[in-house]
């Protein structure tokens, strides 16, 4: 009798365990299904309009509307070579699309400068006192950085946003947006892919592609700083650090560090060849 009781009790325990397993199994499957549904919903929500909105928001957050001055350090590390380092000062008048970069250090490069007015990117060589036209693909100081790395974000003007997918970057949930250059716009790379933080809307990672589809550079923006702009009457987001990895020459990388960012109004004559030349003297 006791034996049969023990067997019944065992069967009972077995049934309970099976029920628990089934419940857990169904629960997990249901949860997974719900999660897939949620992701699908998320993906479904990620429309071209949303992608455009995100890119517009990126531009808006970085737009200072007024002037901008910062000290930019550039460090280029190439395989088997001594690193190259530069200290430069950047002046911007974003409303008029004007840009000046003057090299301060090392002294051999002091006085070299880039001046952008409208679609013209000029390079000044103090060694010759001459100006030369350059394109947006110019490697700044011979490094793997481009002028656009130091400029405000104008993605909406330059590119068409295409939603790619939802993704994650470490612990961050991100929107992945593909950008294709608009016709007739001179940009460094015709195709971009951005990882935009779902939480705060900042770009965390950027991949830049050639027209052939080849990945050329991967850029990380690990730090952003917020600075209040009087002209904009709100905060402007500025990357503190930009890390560029060359995908063609693996092992080569460039670090850009932006310091002493100042959004106060600048002198009008800064964005002229005459001022740059006087600075180089």
């Amino acid at each position: 009798m006791r034996e049969s009781q023990r067997i019944n009790f065992f069967k009972f325990k077995l049934k309970i365990a099976l029920c628990v397993i089934c419940w857990l199994g169904f629960g997990a499957a249901f949860a997974q299904k719900e999660s897939v549904k949620a992701n699908e919903k998320k993906e479904a929500d990620f429309t071209p309009a949303k992608a455009l909105e995100l890119v517009k928001e990126l531009d808006e957050r970085q737009r200072s509307s007024g002037d901008y001055k910062a000290t930019a350090f550039i460090k280029e590390t190439e395989k088997n070579k001594a690193p190259k380092l530069f200290q430069t000062t950047i002046y911007r008048r974003d409303g008029l699309d004007k840009f000046v970069m003057v090299f301060n250090k090392p002294k051999e490069d002091s006085g070299k400068a880039y001046l952008k007015i409208d679609k013209n990117l000029w390079n000044f060589e103090p060694g010759t006192g001459k100006w030369e036209r350059r394109t947006e693909r110019e490697k700044i100081g011979g490094t793997n950085s481009r002028r656009s790395d130091f400029d405000e974000s104008r993605l909406t003007d330059e590119y068409t946003a295409i939603p790619e997918s939802m993704g994650s970057l470490g612990k961050f949930t991100t929107y992945i947006v593909k950008l294709a250059a608009k016709e007739g716009v001179d940009v460094s790379y015709p195709v971009l892919k951005l990882w935009i933080d779902k939480g705060d809307g900042n770009v965390l990672k950027r991949e830049e592609y050639a027209l052939s589809g080849k990945l050329m550079r991967t850029i990380f923006y690990p730090r952003w700083q917020k600075i209040f702009s009087d002209s904009k009457k709100s905060n402007v987001y500025v990357p503190e650090e930009i890390r560029v990895f060359d995908e063609l020459e693996k092992g080569n990388s460039t670090i850009i560090a932006l310091k002493d960012v100042d959004l106060k109004k600048l002198e009008d004559n800064i964005f002229t060849k005459a001022w740059v030349e006087s600075k180089s003297r």
Partner: peptide, 12 residues
């Protein structure tokens, strides 16, 4: 030497 100074100032 200048490279060393710039790297130090840059601090990354």
């Amino acid at each position: 030497k200048q490279n060393q100074e710039i790297a130090s100032e840059m601090g990354v």
